[in-house]
């Protein structure tokens, strides 16, 4: 919250063009509208912090892979970063609403503030910094994923995912089996080689937090590491015609033993 207040003072201490900066800040915070704005701002910041910390994680499905975990962290982190900004915006707006003018004639003229150079500069710089944080965080995460995909490529399980209009099928070439369900062993890196036999689809194993389009005669690749046992929902995330909504199936992250058993009972061989 202090972060929010200090940003606030830096925004408005140039408005009162008089004594020392310290006095100006003090004077500014003696103003009733500033105090009220601060209170509203803190309230709204708190709303967004609660949303980020408690509500978002509840909405998101259980993370079953490294990528999903990273993604949930980003959702929470970005909400927390946005919270003071949202708090400031909504604080000013709420203060203005409580200060509204009623009646059928226009209100008296307010102060003729044409602009305020430092405020514009500080605002731009601060939003630039937040933007930079988001960009750097995102790029680092992309980089981590790309590195993981490269380093684990050798040991990874390869699954060929084929989208056909309105049904997914999965081919485990090394194991020599095919299935309509996506079965994955725990903690083993997996590479999905995704393609389509007709229109565009989008392969989305929900709890794994990754997604890639399926294109005709193209193989698009995604990589992840399932790290939790449980059920996976596989969906199509690109409108693909009549039964797009029904292009869903399930799968499971299982122990290596269970996975090998599943492979052999379906006529494949462990690889």
């Amino acid at each position: 919250m202090s972060e929010h207040n200090s940003e606030h003072s830096s925004e408005h201490n140039e408005l009162d063009l008089k004594p020392t900066p310290g006095q100006r800040a003090t004077n500014l915070f003696k103003r009733k509208d500033v105090q009220r704005t601060a209170v509203f701002g803190i309230f709204w910041t708190a709303v967004f912090v609660v949303l980020g910390l408690y509500i978002y994680p509840k909405w998101m499905p259980e993370a079953m892979s490294t990528d999903m975990k990273a993604m949930e962290k980003i959702m929470v982190g970005f909400t927390l970063i946005s919270a003071p900004i949202a708090g400031l915006v909504m604080g000013i707006a709420t203060q203005a609403i409580t200060n509204r003018h009623k009646g059928n004639t226009p209100p008296p003229d307010g102060p003729a503030i044409r602009t305020n150079g430092p405020v514009v500069v500080v605002w731009s710089v601060v939003s630039g910094i937040f933007c930079l944080i988001a960009v750097v965080w995102g790029i680092m995460e992309v980089n981590t994923m790309a590195n993981a995909a490269t380093s684990e490529a050798g040991t990874a399980l390869h699954v060929q995912v084929t989208g056909s209009q309105w049904v997914w099928s999965f081919k485990y070439a090394d194991q020599g089996i095919e299935s309509d369900k996506l079965m994955l062993p725990l903690d083993r890196p997996v590479v999905f080689d995704v393609t389509s036999v007709d229109v565009n689809h989008s392969f989305w194993p929900v709890q794994l937090g990754v997604k890639v389009d399926a294109n005709r005669l193209q193989t698009t690749v995604i990589h992840t590491v399932p790290n939790k046992l449980g059920r996976i929902d596989v969906k199509c995330a690109e409108l693909c015609g009549l039964y797009h909504a029904y292009m869903e199936t399930t799968g499971e992250v299982m122990t290596t033993t269970d996975f090998n058993n599943w492979v052999t009972t379906n006529g494949g061989h462990v690889a």
Binding site: I97, H101, G110, I113, T115, S127, F130, C131, A134, G138
Partner: peptide, 28 residues
Amino acid sequence: MVTTEMISVPTGLLFLVLLGTVWRGKPW
């Protein structure tokens, strides 16, 4: 991703203009 997130800076300016205009005013 970089160009997309950069848009938040000019977008922030639009908010600043609107909020700066209502600041210390009595909105009708």
